[in-house]
Design a binder for these strands. Structure first.
Lengths: 131, 131
DNA sequence: AACGTATTGAGAACAATTCTCACCGAATCG
DNA sequence: CGATTCGGTGAGAATTGTTCTCAATACGTT
């Protein structure tokens, strides 16, 4: 399944999408990103948002997260942070301190560029609810 | 979104599903689980598999993983392990050593029961391909 | 400026997951 | 032990996040 990376071209759409990601406080879904990005003068299609995100991920510029519901969320690698996820209610919140401060650069032949950590458990509310 | 946990009842279907999960070497999808489970004497519906998995997750018996494609995979918490995920080709593999051996039991008011770590980067093949 | 080719947009297509609803059966209570 | 209650089950429909299609556009190079 190895693929040669095609040369990526610079487009104003990707710039806008990157700016929107940078403006976001936490990881956001492609749909949410699309909603924000379409407010601009020139509309950007949802498919383009998905494709841009795919490219960003391949370039290790962005990282996918899968907390909570079935939607994938994306964030800039530069603004990396992990999450607490409640197993009972599904709520999640960003985690300030990174529990994995220094990952090794390599693991065997694998070249490491980043990570995504979800800490599972129960939030305060669900604990008192009898979880 | 807090929900009271209903008392869960013991059913043979859930036992079968749990056994199938225990027999699996790594995390597997609900569909794959269903395929294995339907081979038995009495068939089990796909919806039941999804519902059982949801219950197991709420009880911290199983943990969801989202490596690679768009499918969610599940594994027993007891057999926990993390993954390496290639950003370019999407391939992934289980990671033997856990990079986060001891998570704190609590983080603020949050009660920690486990975690899921995805280490991102590029596999050997994609590195040589010019990634 | 012209060319080759990656990128875009809109909607259709696809697929993983959830929902619906009638029936079943595990746990509880008298 | 038998009745009752309410969570669980099955099959398929429905939902919805994501990818695909294809003609048109526009980077970047020559």
């Amino acid at each position: 399944m190895t693929q040669q990376l095609p040369r990526t071209r610079k487009t104003w759409q990707r710039d806008v999408i990157l700016q929107a990601m940078d403006a976001a406080k936490c990881h956001i879904t492609a749909e949410e990103l699309h909603r924000r990005v379409r407010r601009g003068v020139r509309p950007i299609g949802l498919a383009t948002v998905y494709r841009a995100l795919e490219t960003f991920v391949r370039e290790a510029l962005a990282e996918p997260v899968h907390v909570g519901d079935g939607k994938v969320r994306y964030g800039l690698t530069a603004k990396h942070h992990d999450h607490l996820v409640c197993l009972n209610c599904g709520e999640w919140e960003p985690l300030n301190e990174c529990l994995l401060p220094r990952t090794p650069r390599r693991l065997g032949t694998f070249k490491v560029t980043g990570h995504q950590l979800d800490v599972y458990g129960y939030c305060a509310q669900c604990q008192t609810a009898g979880a």
